[in-house]
Simulated scan of single mutants.
Amino acid sequence: MSRVIFSINQCSPVEQRLLRALRAMNWNDNWPAQAGFFLEEMGFGSSQVFAFNSLIETIMQADPGFDLLGPLSPFVSRDELNLLAALGNASRKASNALPDVEDGLPAVLKSLVDTCGTALRRAGLPMKTRATLQNGKALPPMTSKILPFQGESSMRRVKVLALHAPTPRVRRIVLGGYSLKSFAVDLPAQWIKVFLPGPTEQQIGRAFTIRDFDTVKKELTFDIALHEGGPMSDWALRAQVGDELQIAGPRGGFKGVDEKSWLLLACDDTGLPAIAAIVCQLPAHLQVQVFIEVADETERQFLAVQPRVKVRWIYRNGSADQPAETLAEVLRYSPLPVRSGDAWIAAEASTIRAIRTQLLRDRGFELGRVHAAGYWKRGEQDHRDLAAG
Rank of each mutant, 00 (worst) to 15 (best):
V330K: 09
N28I: 08
A86C: 05
L19A: 06
W376F: 11
E80N: 04
F291G: 01
P166I: 13
P99F: 02
W235F: 12
F302T: 12
V311N: 06
A388N: 03
N26R: 13
G36N: 01
R157W: 04
C116I: 12
P148K: 05
A165P: 02
E297I: 10
E299T: 10
W313F: 05
P188S: 12
A387K: 02
F254D: 03
A372L: 04
D212I: 08
A304V: 04
P188E: 09
M60A: 05
L18I: 09
L22Y: 03
R171S: 05
L163R: 06
R363T: 00
F183S: 10
A372Q: 03
W344V: 02
S144N: 14
R300D: 04
I352F: 01
Y178P: 01
E293G: 03
W313M: 08
P168S: 12
R312W: 09
A138W: 02
R206T: 03
Q281G: 08
T167R: 14
L286Q: 02
D114Y: 12
P323W: 15
S340A: 14
Q306H: 13
R157K: 13
F50Q: 06
E15F: 00
D67L: 01
V216D: 14
T132I: 12
Q301K: 07
V108G: 08
R23A: 02
R332T: 12
E80Y: 08
D258E: 15
I352G: 05
V241A: 04
S7C: 13
Q240V: 12
P323Y: 14
C116M: 09
P74W: 07
A97C: 06
R130C: 12
P32T: 09
F6G: 01
D269W: 15
A138Y: 04
E102R: 11
K181Y: 15
A320S: 14
D269F: 15
T270I: 10
F195N: 09
Q287R: 11
Y333H: 12
L147V: 04
L386V: 07
L72T: 09
S2A: 15
I292E: 03
E41S: 11
P71R: 05
T326G: 11
Q134W: 12
R23L: 03
A387S: 02
G389S: 03
K159H: 12
L303E: 06
D269H: 15
G368N: 09
V101Y: 05
G379N: 11
